[in-house]
């Protein structure tokens, strides 16, 4: 693909994301209309008079036509105003700003773990397809997928963090070192369920790559060992997983929500769970928006990456 072609592909993909984003916003906005309960009542409290309620309704713009309310909602979202939590003590945007780094660090460490675990096991498994190692790894992978993440989290806390004292039992850190230490066990719990997916994809990628003509040619040209693996096997084997990027991200995000609750990490996932438990509407709405926009963004990046990595992708 030519440079210009790539540029055009990226541009077109970006344009495609715009209507999707708008529909997402509409959907999240519509949640407000579906949820039982009067939002004005939520603001005013149960003992408010009818006059107070009406005043709040006008203040919140609830007396206006729905489409205009949506336009106002877009305006508020654009300026980062997502309302406050149910108790009114915190802005939702502040909550999101505070939780995002936690979730991002958790996702980053989990990604590293996932890639390392999946890469190592895939190489091992692909060495001799259907060999003993391959089968054993497949069994372990099945366990990894089957173990409930939250349960594994509890077991890691009680069985590893408590006896060794090497990791905090729940909670986050405040310096880079303590943050990383706090992220290890949750990231491990999360990777255990996601790594098998990447491992299976990588394994078949490696097996295919080994069978390919490139590989044979390279071998014939005298390329050996790690160079061969790296340049001719892994590079080609990486293409299918990259196209899985979006799927892996949603899996990781889903897992992060669970793991953050189990380990008490003050990230976006814990906020989401607590908001669902406390029926805190603004927080749910704000977080749904953030999560879905993140997935749209990751899909976008994933598609672009595939286009750049794989010369065979037609654009």
């Amino acid at each position: 693909m030519t440079g210009r072609g790539r540029f055009r592909f990226v541009g077109r993909r970006l344009l495609q994301a715009i209507p999707l984003t708008l529909v997402l916003l509409l959907l999240v906005f519509a949640m407000l209309k579906v949820v039982p309960g009067d939002p004005a009542l939520q603001v005013a409290g149960p003992r408010a008079s009818a006059a107070t309620l009406e005043a709040i309704r006008i203040h919140l713009g609830l007396d206006q036509p729905v489409w205009l309310q949506f336009v106002h909602y877009l305006g508020r979202v654009a300026t980062g105003d997502l309302g406050t939590t149910a108790t009114g003590s915190t802005k939702v945007s502040t909550l999101i700003a505070a939780g995002t780094p936690v979730t991002l660090v958790l996702l980053a460490v989990s990604t590293v773990f996932t890639v390392v675990i999946a890469g190592a096991t895939a190489l091992l498994a692909a060495r001799r397809p259907d060999g003993l190692a391959d089968r054993l790894i497949n069994v372990v992978a099945a366990f990894g997928v089957g173990v409930p993440t939250f349960w594994l989290g509890i077991v890691l806390l009680a069985g590893v963090a408590l006896p060794t004292g090497a990791f905090p039992i729940g909670g986050w850190g405040d310096t880079p070192a303590t943050v990383l230490r706090a992220a290890v066990l949750p990231a491990l719990a999360l990777s255990v369920s996601v790594a098998p997916v990447l491992m299976a994809s990588l394994r078949s990628g490696i097996v295919e790559a080994r069978r390919s003509e490139y590989h044979a040619a390279a071998q014939a040209a005298g390329v050996r060992g790690w160079t061969l693996t790296r340049r001719f096997v892994l590079r080609n084997a990486a293409v299918p997983p990259v196209s899985l990027l979006a799927a892996l991200t949603t899996l990781l995000l889903s897992g992060a929500v669970v793991v953050e609750s189990t380990f008490g990490l003050p990230g976006l996932g814990l906020s989401l769970t607590q908001a669902a438990q406390n029926r805190d509407f603004n927080v749910i709405q704000g977080l749904t928006l953030v999560f879905s926009l993140a997935v749209v963004a990751v899909n976008l990046v994933g598609d672009v990456l595939v286009a750049l990595l794989d010369p065979r992708v037609e654009v």
């Binding site: 959907l27 949603t250 908001a275 997935v295």
Partner: peptide, 19 residues
């Protein structure tokens, strides 16, 4: 389908259970 895929499945589940 595109729209649904923009929501991580477990998060979609929590939101729907909330509603």
């Amino acid at each position: 389908a595109d729209l649904i895929q923009a929501f991580p499945s477990y998060i979609l589940l929590i939101v729907l259970v909330f509603l």
